[in-house]
């Protein structure tokens, strides 16, 4: 029961208010309650909105794939190849980054990635570079990975740790090679955790404002940056609400599809 009340108060009601607000108007920098579809027509009629939409979707998709692929070997090694002590320490070090502000971590990346930054200085010592990394897509992805990778490793690790070791041994006893065991036994058994980790990566990177702004130079902008732009000039909160609702609906669609995939049984 408390969870229902919590969801109603902190999710359903604000969401309904957001939906209602998308039909309001702004007059003299002040929101005026009403019911006008002009904000939806205006935003959906703009090319830059759809460019931003597909770009944000693409960025989040790419980040999800990269994060999942990078996280899996790490989580696999921690689950099956190291001692419990090492695993506990690894968990500790994966959680520690969350003790500091994400914004601070992103700003610190600027020191590493800029043209005169630490990475380019090191590369120049061996005659390479300088490479443009800040204010690029690469910079944005570095930021997304900073946000998502530790979380993905933790979620995958929890899932892999729950895989029944006897089934792995049975696969080996039946002649299944190591590589095939991973894909035919371990991944299917840990599927739910791996997909949940991927969904979290997608949600976090889809809505993130900090990385594309401070490491990607807002070039080109994502939907979260478009929300900021829309509110900054003219105080168009109702139009920002249109963008936000579109993002929420998209995330719902992705999430339900992923969950359906995760819990689908083999026929």
């Amino acid at each position: 029961m408390p969870i229902v009340v919590w969801q109603l108060v902190f999710f359903v009601f604000p969401l309904l208010f957001l939906l209602l607000m998308s039909f309001w108007l702004v007059k003299n920098y002040r929101m005026v309650p009403g019911f006008d579809s002009v904000n939806w027509i205006k935003m959906y009629g703009k090319g830059y909105f759809w460019d931003g939409y597909w770009r944000t979707l693409g960025y989040a998709g790419i980040t999800t794939v990269i994060t999942s692929v990078l996280a899996f070997p790490c989580a696999f090694a921690l689950a099956f190849k190291v001692s419990p002590t090492v695993r506990r320490w690894a968990m500790f070090f994966l959680i520690v980054p969350f003790f500091t502000s994400y914004l601070v971590r992103i700003f610190s990346w600027q020191i590493f990635l800029n043209d005169n930054g630490i990475i380019n200085v090191l590369l120049s010592s061996i005659g390479l570079g300088p490479f443009s990394m800040l204010n690029t897509f690469f910079g944005t992805v570095v930021g997304y990975l900073t946000l998502c990778l530790p979380l993905a490793v933790v979620l995958q690790l929890i899932s892999l740790s729950n895989v029944d070791q006897r089934l792995i041994e049975a696969a080996h006893n039946l002649g299944c090679g190591s590589f095939r065991t991973v894909f035919a036994v371990i991944i299917p058994l840990a599927k739910i955790g791996i997909i949940v980790a991927a969904v979290f990566c997608f949600i976090l990177s889809f809505g993130d404002f900090v990385s594309p702004y401070y490491l990607g130079g807002s070039k080109p902008p994502t939907l979260s940056i478009l929300i900021i732009d829309t509110t900054k000039s003219g105080q168009q909160w109702p139009r920002a609400a249109v963008v936000a609702i579109t993002m929420i609906v998209t995330l719902f669609a992705i999430m339900f599809t992923a969950i359906a995939l995760a819990y689908r049984r083999r026929s």
Partner: peptide, 11 residues
């Protein structure tokens, strides 16, 4: 002007 600025950023 604001709309154009958004278009420019997205171009």
């Amino acid at each position: 002007w604001n709309d154009f600025w958004s278009e420019y950023k997205n171009a």
